[in-house]
């Protein structure tokens, strides 16, 4: 029984990390119909930036905030210099964002190190609680809490604030939003930066969770995030959350019982969704 609880916590924590990556992907796709294949690179930069800042400042909070700032800055540059010239051309977008992915992961090796880096859990969050025979690892619970908070915050912003309503209106009808006198490009940039910042936050949270970071981690997690947005439906935040939890849980349980099949299990999930409902669980259109 305690084994199951552990797997549950594990799966949820991984799911939250994937959600942080997927939420930006899906928001950006929904609004700008840009699928950012460089998103995983921002995730990896968040991880490296977080580890580095934690080492320098000794404060985990500063490290998380710094990582988000790094992510947003990179997102700003990326949107402005690379994505903006190719709005509306899907083939070019896909190609160019993968190029960004390539450069971002290689730059990690130049700026930091080509070798994997060790990442420590901050003392306050290390260790675990024991409740009876169940051992709850503090950091994993922390990741779950942060993931849920981000989910709620994103929902709140989209439902209650004017800027959130404008973003949602933009997803539904870009032209009409502009005809109301709203400069949609500014909104694009903003959403792109927020998405990038959340990806970086995910990376920074992942680092102590897995204990070690390496430059290819962006791509690995990006694959999971793509599976999540396909399963959940492109453009849907709730869909991403549900799919991320599914992917996290199936990953953690399969890794325990059938380790060979953990990625295959998620792929199978995606294939089934594509066959039955190509638009995803929460998707409106394919």
């Amino acid at each position: 029984m305690d084994g199951v609880i552990n797997l549950l916590v594990n799966g949820l924590a991984t799911g939250m990390l994937v959600f942080l990556l997927a939420v930006g992907l899906t928001l950006i796709f929904g609004l700008m119909s840009v699928l950012n294949f460089g998103h995983g690179g921002l995730f990896a930069w968040g991880a490296y930036g977080g580890v580095w800042l934690y080492g320098v400042t000794g404060s985990f909070v500063a490290a998380l905030i710094g990582a988000v700032v790094i992510g947003m800055a990179l997102g700003w540059m990326m949107e402005r210099w690379v994505i903006r010239p190719v709005y509306g051309n899907h083939v070019q977008q896909i190609l160019v964002t993968l190029g960004v992915m390539l450069v971002l992961s290689e730059m990690l090796k130049v700026v930091w190190s080509p070798n994997p880096l060790k990442a420590d859990v901050p003392p306050l969050l290390s260790g675990s609680w024991e409740i009876g025979s169940v051992i709850l690892i503090k950091y994993r619970l922390f990741v779950i809490v942060i993931g849920l908070l981000v989910f709620l915050a994103v929902q709140l912003v989209l439902k209650k604030t004017k800027i959130g309503l404008i973003v949602r209106a933009g997803v539904m009808n870009k032209e009409m939003v502009q005809a109301l006198g709203i400069h949609i490009r500014t909104i694009f940039t903003l959403v792109f930066m927020v998405g990038a910042g959340l990806a970086a936050l995910g990376g920074a949270l992942l680092a102590p969770y897995s204990g070690v970071i390496f430059s290819e981690m962006g791509m690995q997690f990006a694959i999971l995030a793509f599976i999540v947005v396909v399963i959940g439906g492109m453009g849907s935040i709730q869909g991403s959350m549900l799919a991320a939890i599914l992917v996290g849980l199936s990953g953690s349980f399969l890794a325990y019982y059938l380790p060979e099949l953990s990625l295959a299990g998620n792929m199978l999930l995606m294939v089934i969704v594509l066959l039955i409902k190509p638009s995803g669980l929460f998707g409106a259109k394919g």
């Binding site: 796709f29 699928l35 294949f37 899907h90 083939v91 896909i94 690995q220 990006a222 694959i223 793509f226 599976i227 396909v230 492109m234 380790p259 060979e260 990625l263 295959a264 792929m267 995606m270 294939v271 594509l274 066959l275 190509p278 394919g286």
Partner: peptide, 29 residues
């Protein structure tokens, strides 16, 4: 057949995921 009737993004994502799966398969088998 799985992805080419959908938007171009799907084929790019699916091929990426499938090649990732084969890489894992080659590592594990």
């Amino acid at each position: 057949m799985l992805s080419l009737r959908l938007k171009s993004h799907f084929y790019a994502m699916l091929t990426l995921a499938f090649s990732g799966l084969l890489l894992v398969l080659a590592e594990k088998w």
